[in-house]
Design a protein around this nucleic acid. Sequence first.
DNA 1: TATAAACTGATAATTGTTATCATATTTTAT
DNA 2: ATAAAATATGATAACAATTATCAGTTTATA
Lengths: 127, 127
Amino acid sequence: MNYSRQREQIYEALANNVVHPSAEYIYDILKQANSNISLATVYRNLNKMALNGRIKKIRGLEDRAHFDHNTFEHYHFICRKCGRIYDIPCEIAPEIISKTEKSTGFKIESHDIVFSGICRECSENER
Amino acid sequence: MNYSRQREQIYEALANNVVHPSAEYIYDILKQANSNISLATVYRNLNKMALNGRIKKIRGLEDRAHFDHNTFEHYHFICRKCGRIYDIPCEIAPEIISKTEKSTGFKIESHDIVFSGICRECSENER
DNA sequence: TATAAACTGATAATTGTTATCATATTTTAT
DNA sequence: ATAAAATATGATAACAATTATCAGTTTATA
């Protein structure tokens, strides 16, 4: 894989965003910021980096994929009202993985826990 | 919500399938079986039932959604080779939920654990 | 039964994503 | 440094999954 300025811009935009943006969101940010980057380039590089393990691809409740620069073990909460994705820092016991591998014969390479419900902001706005 | 013959057919097709089928898969089954059901009807009813809680919508690694008639607590394993989705009957400690709710202020309504890796069949075929 | 509400099949439209391709940038070997 | 090969880009067409539309049908209600 060669160096590319666009790829680094995309990574920066991803890393400097609190949210877990979609490809289109990153595209909009970079577009505003200056460049005449192409949406295809954004998709291409996000997928490439996700394949590398440099970033993570998250699938929520919506149709579009979201991306996360944080590759350390952590989980996600998806608000069914606003669609935002939050990090959840809790942990599950590692023996669950090995126990499950043993009972199923599957090779578990990764896992994600996805909680869903209503986020604080949305439940405050509800009233 | 009114009764509809098509909806029950769709539910039956879903319940009698070991796999976690996609909308298109169910459409094909019903199409073969007899009826001139419409793909739109399949989508409409799967979504409606998922909203109700009668069935569950699962998002895997692929673009298309899959559906599960089993609404009891259980988790999923997605094979990154064949894309199949398997049930995983393990459990996580319920206090993780309440602890997470407390620390975040979120209302957690549901959660799913998605393991991914290589299923047994695929790792056997690899050799 | 008549009326309203919900549902259907067929298909057009929409949306998120990927493929294509001519051009540009980056790496490599000279 | 410079030419050749490899990789990446922007623009946009193509694609696949899903949703919207709408005239006609079925189901529930009065």
